[in-house]
Design a protein around this nucleic acid. Structure first.
Lengths: 339, 339
DNA sequence: AAAATAAGCTTAAACGTTTAAGTAACCTAG
DNA sequence: CTAGGTTACTTAAACGTTTAAGCTTATTTT
């Protein structure tokens, strides 16, 4: 790369000190009482040399980098991809750059990533935490790093968070299935200690309980690293036996997509034999022969809120943590039609 | 954020100069002939204070940031999301951080982004260029910024690029449709001057020509910003009339997904009435009642190659540009079965 | 025993900014 | 005419590193 022009180069050409140039180019001429002529001369030279400030130097001095870090759980999942995009857009509106990383649902990778980002002196972090990362998050808190948890709050940690009302969303979805006449509703969730999934499970169980039904063995768990086999086994169990399930509720889009692949393969008719509802959105849901009923998370709203909350946290480090809980929307389509 | 420990803090506690500390912590003790005892004392203190080097200061000195920029065309498209993930992984293997941005297929936004990234002193760029960004790319070249184009080469610009053999992939896909007995093959592509799309169109046209067929009005274009309406119109035209198309070839996954939505709506039977083939992968293709035949781009290979090419470009700025062309694979499934 | 070498450290400058404090020249008011 | 103010600049230090060059003191060589 060719050497870029620095304040020094401009100063030299204008025959003044770098300080003066700095005052002008950061629009502090008033305060520094720079002469009108000199100011315009400096500006002209700056333009001629195509001066671009060196953010490194500036940040070194100011202690701020105008950069935030975003750690998502898995960037190849469009759900997180969308979040990344919205966070980036919103950040740019505030002249903030985003450095991102994907933890791939792996606590170790997440810790690495966090270190890298903090070493790059980000001003703060937005984190979609993976399982087992409580300690890391706690450390952020102790080191007084401004951060916001997104999508997955940790109730045990006093930290700002943005998420949907998982319990309620789940409850409503199951209630919808009940209203459409389903009696033997199964759920497939991740096997994880993460609170948002626990809440989704709780919503499922409570909705059934309130309808006088018992969950029984209809709640199945799949391991993230054995998604395919676990889901197939779960579906085999749920749809087999004397009392096969007549509805299936998936706790995330990736679970649903893998599940629907198998359901297609088995030739199970949706919604006649089996109603389907899933959390999260996916283009794949539209192309399934019976468009899939899903719980839409207000991603845009969440992303914006996350950035704004983080920025105010950065601006005022004494700010108490804030939990923002947003309602999700059930989008009813053919996969859960009454029969 | 609490103040982090600096070399100075360590030096003070050890009663030595910062220089000595620097030598030890950058493992130059041999060269600088630091005493064994002192070295271990310094290391111990560094550990105790949890010293983390300040990359800003280091970069300011060295002129390198160990950071590359990635500009994708649209991060909310899983295709690019995957690329982002792979680029990030590969970069991390080399201890390089990635700063990314999405141009949303918008040349202006792309220019903004480029400036932001360059101002952050990235060592180089990987760009998936959007339409109309030739000038920006040319400027990169003139400013001697190391960069690599990905997915979409600009044949008019001497620059390194990684892409698939679009012409050939397209040709093969159409040939496959011909072999499965299709005679009236339509194609829907983006209306764009981008070379990779032009190549895909050329592959389509030539495959038909070689089979003694003419393209006629069976090549339809859709505008990125009017995707839905343009695709619907195109499909109406292609499937209507006396000689309705018996196969449809989509130039990208987003075109295909929008198209398949409409095809489902219209109740057109795939593959009986209409065979379907698309470029790129998508989970949605799996869930379509007739799993969609598609052209798989070797994303991992491309991502790795892009990072490696960029890094060698950064290391040796005199290096001549290199074009890497990788073959894509046609994955045949039910949507294009013979009838 | 003087000279050369080695060992173990320090000094100081540099990277490109920002900004408080200082200075010199001129102007104005009493 | 002179104290005080204003204008238009400069000086210098600081942010946290890196690294060539310098400086002691101790050890080896001849």
């Amino acid at each position: 790369m060719k050497k870029r022009a620095s304040l020094k180069d401009i100063a030299q050409e204008a025959g003044v000190s770098t300080a003066l140039v700095s005052y002008v180019l950061t629009n502090k001429e008033e305060k520094a009482r720079v002469g009108r002529e000199m100011a315009s001369k400096i500006r002209k030279i700056a333009r001629k040399l195509n001066y671009q400030p060196n953010y490194l130097a500036r940040s070194l001095k100011s202690g701020r980098t105008d950069t935030i870090g975003l750690i998502v759980a898995d960037i190849s999942n469009p759900f997180f991809g969308q979040i990344a995009r919205i966070v980036e857009d919103e950040a740019k509106r505030h002249n903030i750059t985003v450095i991102f990383g994907s933890s791939d649902e792996n606590a170790e990778k997440s810790a690495d990533l966090m270190n890298v980002l903090l070493n790059r002196q980000v001003d703060g972090l937005i984190v979609i935490p993976s399982e087992g990362s409580e300690q890391q998050i706690l450390q952020l808190s102790e080191r007084h790093v401004p951060f916001v948890l997104m999508d997955r709050p940790f109730p045990s940690i006093a930290a700002s968070s943005i998420s949907i009302n998982n319990f309620e969303a789940s409850y409503n979805a199951v209630e919808h299935l009940l209203h459409s006449g389903r009696k033997r509703i199964g759920m497939i969730a991740y096997q994880t200690g993460l609170h948002h999934i626990a809440e989704r499970r709780r919503g499922f169980e409570e909705a059934l309980a309130n309808a006088g039904l018992k969950t029984g063995k209809r709640l199945k768990l799949a391991r993230y690293n054995h998604l395919r086999e676990d889901i197939r086994k779960a579906i085999d169990q749920l749809t087999g036996g004397k009392h096969p399930a007549d509805a299936l509720f998936f706790a995330t889009n990736s679970l649903a997509i893998e599940g629907l692949r198998y359901i297609s393969e088995l030739g199970i008719r949706v919604p006649e034999q089996l109603a389907v509802v899933s959390f999260d959105e996916s283009e794949a849901f539209d192309l399934f022969h019976a468009p899939v009923t899903f719980i839409r998370q207000p991603i845009r709203e969440m992303g914006k809120a996350a950035v704004q909350l983080l920025l105010s946290q950065i601006a005022d480090s004494g700010r108490p943590p804030e939990d923002i809980r947003i309602d999700a929307e059930l989008v009813v389509r053919r996969s859960s039609a009454a029969n």
